[in-house]
Nucleic acid binder design. Structure first.
Lengths: 253, 253
DNA sequence: CGCCGGTTTGAGTCCATTCAAGAGGAGTGG
DNA sequence: CCACTCCTCTTGAATGGACTCAAACCGGCG
């Protein structure tokens, strides 16, 4: 077991096991999946819309995002992924990519053949179920983003996104809930939120002026989690993470 | 087989088999799922956000929609479902509903216990895979809606939605691509699009004035599919339906 | 030191909203 | 059969939140 858990693929286990329990054989089978390592520079494509990819990938370090481009050149960012995320599991099932997946920062990924993933999901129902679950949580987050963009004003949208990042980054061990490095530019934030970078800038300053956050470069410090969550109309239920035993407010330990 | 295919549950087969082939035993097992019939009046809830539902449901007639409500009372409609759709398959896996599912019109549904669905998915990998696929296509549509709301102007958004409805309704045998009954009010359309009903009204009239569609009550007639699709920045790839053998433009047979 | 990508700020504009009121149609009950 | 209500659709006028355009600032880096 020790040998197996040293595989780089073991990075996928913590998140998958959040969804449902796996046994030792399940874990061993996941870790034994064939893979190929790759590094990508920021903005490089993992998959392009319309591609028929042969591999899904596990993100080992850095950040990646999904996006679509519209006719006039506008871009909508649909999801953000971080270490431990299985990016693009869905393309193993769907076949043809309906959106782009790109490196946001310098990243390292493990490319896993679709065919091996599907065989494993079929052979081990518990593993298949956990993978299904993982893609459904992605879907849930996407519905929340859809709601955010469709029915909330700029301040609420941004506060909501900052709350989500706070929780997801802390779950992934990449920052504290109330003090983290935001991995994206204001223009990229704008593309998540359906706003312009200029307006994101003004809105960030507004949150700061109201004493909800402080910022230095890309660092975000949440001054008052409860107020930020209230302003952002934020309820973490859509992340489908059981918060029992997790501190949801490290600002008051 | 004849006996089995008379089950009301056979309504789910055409769509599921669009995703991947099933064999006779798979079909028989799906149709043999236990279920309970129910009728619901418009606006009645199938599942409420936060519920821990015990059943998923197959929509036998009428229309249903998913939605979320934000703090100020605004509503975002996240998806529209029609006859033959497995509504809420995801809650079998996720457990707790992260959004509402409601009857849009008078509907009939078959309630199927989650536990039976999950057992079938585990026992028959091909069935599990097709169900997974089905939920992933829902996710793809949701990403397109997210993009629509986030990065397209009102006219483009509405034209895009009308194109999607045209195709989905015709796939489901509920109308012709260029002549169908729109099952929703302008206020509900607005909630799909992140607009107000007033602006949807003006935008509809704009499409009509430009000779793209004509309307009478809830009936929509597409006058010029190619132009409507161009105005709507519409590309059907995200529906993940193979259009081979299907006419994508019945206006020129 | 000068470039370059990202951030910040200001001024003017516009797309969509809000508010308001009227018209049309379906259903109900006296 | 008509009056009444309720809901949806339609239209106008005024408002406003976010956008556009443009310029300046800033920090890192070659």
């Amino acid at each position: 077991m020790a040998g197996q858990s040293e595989s780089l693929l073991s990075a996928m286990l913590p998140k998958l096991e959040t969804w449902a329990p796996l046994d030792d054989d399940d874990r061993a089978a996941l870790i034994a999946l064939p893979y190929r390592l790759q590094s990508l520079a920021p903005t490089k494509y993992i998959v392009r819309e319309g591609d028929r990819a042969e591999h899904s990938c596990l993100l080992l370090s850095g950040f990646a995002f999904r996006s679509k481009i519209v006719r006039d050149g506008g871009r909508q960012i649909l999801a953000l992924h971080m270490r431990g995320d299985m990016v693009d599991l869905q393309n193993a099932v769907l076949g043809r990519a309906d959106h782009n997946v790109q490196a946001l920062t310098e990243i390292e990924i493990a490319l896993i053949p679709h065919e091996a993933i599907l065989r494993l999901a079929a052979d081990r129902p518990r593993v298949g179920r956990v993978m299904w679950h993982d893609t459904l949580v992605d879907g849930s987050i996407n519905r929340e983003w859809n709601t955010n963009v469709g029915r909330r004003d700029a301040t609420t949208r941004l506060a909501h996104l900052l709350c989500e990042f706070a929780l997801r980054l802390s779950f992934a061990g990449l920052g504290e809930q109330c003090n983290y490095e935001l991995p994206m530019t204001q223009e990229q934030l704008a593309d998540c939120l359906g706003l312009t970078s200029v307006h994101v800038n003004r809105t960030l300053k507004g949150l700061e002026a109201n004493g909800l956050i402080t910022r230095t470069a890309r660092n975000v410090r949440v001054v008052d989690w409860d107020r930020l969550a209230a302003v952002g109309d934020f309820n973490s239920a859509y992340l489908h993470v059981d918060l029992e035993g997790r501190s949801i407010d490290p600002s008051r330990p």
